[in-house]
């Protein structure tokens, strides 16, 4: 789904503001990276250098191809040093020769300035750390991904192994660092959307470790006027801006099943013995949707976390 050029700036700034309002913690993909990425694709910063603005029709989130252009431009920015760009005087001269070209070069220079020093969301990224060495070894693994439907995904899990032994698919790299092997990343790339209990069983099997906690968290979908909402959503929610943030946690520390999601019904699943499950959907929305979204959550039987967004502003470098 292509976004008309005239709507790109307001769309990006609205999503930026929605993410900022939710201020997601480390359960979700890093907020700073998400905001850096959105700032980069904002036409106030990148003009039409990263066009066309493509969205996922099902989630209203920026499509992978659009996001990937910013990452590619960042690699170009890092390969060209600052001296590879023209000075203000040179840009004025270029603008006198061709206004559009001068403007494009000016925008590329400021976009590169932004991209050079910032970290963006990666299409797939994995890392790990040792949480505890004794009496048993606990290893924490994170997997971030721009999912195919455009939502931003983070899966993280804690693995317990006998003292000093690294889970299969990982290796200890000293000073608490963990090197995650490709095979584990490939497994998650294929199975990121597998039901939580099955994913936990696969991870336990592949890593030969006990999974203490498994969390899957998404930022998105982002609903806005003009996009087609799923049939199960109240139609009036399409009249404003609404960003979803969801998380599912399967953990030994939890007890029972808790479902605080107004949109997705609780799945039919058999929770393994000794584990509990928690599911939640939070929202940030434009002011007029605040009451309807809260009502929606209350009809589902709980008080949801619904935050009102600030007014989005264009910000140039």
């Amino acid at each position: 789904m292509l976004l008309e050029p005239g709507r790109v700036g307001s769309y990006v700034r609205a999503l930026h503001s929605a993410v900022n309002t939710l201020a997601p913690d480390e359960t979700w993909v890093p907020m700073r990276r998400a905001l850096n990425h959105l700032h980069a694709i904002d036409p106030a910063v990148s003009g039409n250098l990263l066009a066309p603005a493509e969205l996922s029709a099902s989630t209203g989130m920026p499509a992978y191809t659009w996001m990937a252009r910013a990452v590619a431009e960042q690699e170009l920015a890092r390969s060209l040093d600052a001296a590879g760009h023209k000075s203000d005087g040179e840009l004025e001269r270029v603008s006198r020769l061709d206004q559009d070209l001068g403007e494009r070069m000016r925008i590329r220079r400021s976009l590169h300035q932004h991209l050079r020093g910032k970290t963006l969301l990666a299409s797939t990224y994995m890392d790990g750390a040792v949480r505890r060495l004794e009496p048993q070894t606990d290893t924490h693994i994170r997997y971030d991904r721009t999912s195919p439907d455009g939502r931003w995904l983070r899966i993280q899990f804690d693995l317990r192994t006998p003292k000093g032994r690294a889970p299969l698919g990982t290796a200890f790299a000293g000073e608490g660092r963990v090197q995650v092997k490709d095979s584990l990343q490939h497994l998650l790339t294929r199975h990121f959307s597998t039901p939580l209990t099955a994913l936990m069983a696969s991870l336990a099997d592949v890593t030969n470790a006990q999974v203490l906690t498994l969390t899957r968290a998404y930022l998105g979908p982002f609903w806005f006027p003009g996009m087609t909402l799923p049939v199960s959503a109240p139609p009036q929610l399409g009249q404003g801006l609404l960003l979803h943030a969801t998380r599912e946690i399967l953990a030994t520390e939890l007890d029972g099943a808790h479902h605080l999601d107004a949109f997705e019904p609780a799945p039919e699943e058999r929770i393994p013995d000794g584990y509990g499950v928690f599911r939640e959907r939070r929202f940030s929305c434009s002011q007029p949707l605040l009451v309807p979204v809260r009502d929606w959550c209350e009809r589902a039987g709980f008080r949801g976390t619904v935050l009102a967004m600030g007014v989005p502003k264009a910000r140039r470098l």
Binding site: A72, E73, E75, L76
Partner: peptide, 14 residues
């Protein structure tokens, strides 16, 4: 690979 080709395309555009 797609991402690498993407970088080459950005270079070509520049």
């Amino acid at each position: 690979l797609y991402e690498r080709v993407g970088v080459r395309l950005r270079e070509a555009t520049h």
